[in-house]
Design a protein around this nucleic acid. Sequence first.
DNA 1: TCTTGAGTAATAGTAATACTATCATTATAG
DNA 2: CTATAATGATAGTATTACTATTACTCAAGA
Lengths: 228, 228
Amino acid sequence: MSIGIKISLNPKLYLRDPQETPLGQKIIKNSILLIDEIGFESFTFKKLAGKIKSTEASIYRYFENKHLLLIYLVSWYWEWLSYLIDINTLNIESSRKKLNIIIDTLVEAYRENPAIEYVNESILQRLVIAEGAKAYHTKAVDKDNKDGFFINFKELSEKIAKVIEEVDPQFKYPHALASNLIEMANNHSFFAVHLPRLTDIKISDEDYSPVKEMLCHFVSKLLNNEKP
Amino acid sequence: MSIGIKISLNPKLYLRDPQETPLGQKIIKNSILLIDEIGFESFTFKKLAGKIKSTEASIYRYFENKHLLLIYLVSWYWEWLSYLIDINTLNIESSRKKLNIIIDTLVEAYRENPAIEYVNESILQRLVIAEGAKAYHTKAVDKDNKDGFFINFKELSEKIAKVIEEVDPQFKYPHALASNLIEMANNHSFFAVHLPRLTDIKISDEDYSPVKEMLCHFVSKLLNNEKP
DNA sequence: TCTTGAGTAATAGTAATACTATCATTATAG
DNA sequence: CTATAATGATAGTATTACTATTACTCAAGA
């Protein structure tokens, strides 16, 4: 059941807007599934074309290359998170409560109701956890940044930083803590599954709430204002 | 001036030990320089062969593929850090002081004296900051982990976790904090230069001490024992 | 109704990448 | 002086990451 939101992303990321056409939507949907399945390195436009019974050339009309497609998908995820945070914190007064809701959302976004039929947000979250860092770990980071390719991540991070500042206006590192909360939410979900010695989190039955608890604990130690 | 340490790494990472031969040492030395220069995605064994006036086939005798070479280089870095931490904390009694030294080392390893003539550790640190996460963000992470490819990172992380436990035995997340300190040291050095809105750190004149200050501040807030 | 054009498919082709294989040459250790 | 390990030289293959061209399809505008 779609609630009809439309995610708006930097048009420089694509040649033709994939949200506007059936083929474009198929590209978004199936690239998420395929990258999740075989990993970004093995993913090619040819394989994707095979999966959706289209052709390489048709996909190249939408995205210049697979790196821009990755940035597109990752940006989509940050926009979606941003949207979730907005609706989940609507009418919440307490900044501290807001911050807890933000942490909940960062970690357990995958539990939310699907918002758009051609995007499996739960798989997209797994993809971002596994491949997200590759979007900016590249020689082109400065150029890509100038082109505004990371705006969605930066805006999400800034949104969180603002709430951190509300909670403790004296805290010196609101932006660093904000981006670190996002990174930790993803990294420790990944570590718990694949490299458990790098974390203290234990996940059972797909329950990621221990990650939430840890982040809440960190935040409550780091930030001083204990008002509700 | 070499002090003659030999870094020992998982032999499964290579086909022939590159530390044992002049060509092997050239491969290590120049792959660091070349990956730093053009980025891991653009890096190929052919280009490296051109740089060292050897051939692709010769390089393939040392490393199965460029991914294993990356893991090798990154593992080298973690071993080197581990070694630095050991000598820098030698004879230090106070756990809290130890932890500060560890943070210093994580951030400013590049200032240390070169230990091995065919490795430019300062450039290697920049490489790990930029490309390190790619070592384990792959579909083969579980297999690679079983083969012990991440042992050096895990041991470094565990070494730091132990000191954290000494400082505050009550703290519930020593392993997570340890790996997070390593990640933050690298990420925020990267963000400060390339994506400044994601951090509060400002770097001028190659001076990364603000990153140290931030990590020390986080640690002192998170850990309770205030004994010296 | 005819035309136009946007979107897509089909096909082909290229340069580079990621390897593998073979054989000749050089260095060195016994 | 010889045996053998290491390297170099060369060639070849399948796949990747594109670009180009042509043709088909279908819906809207004249």
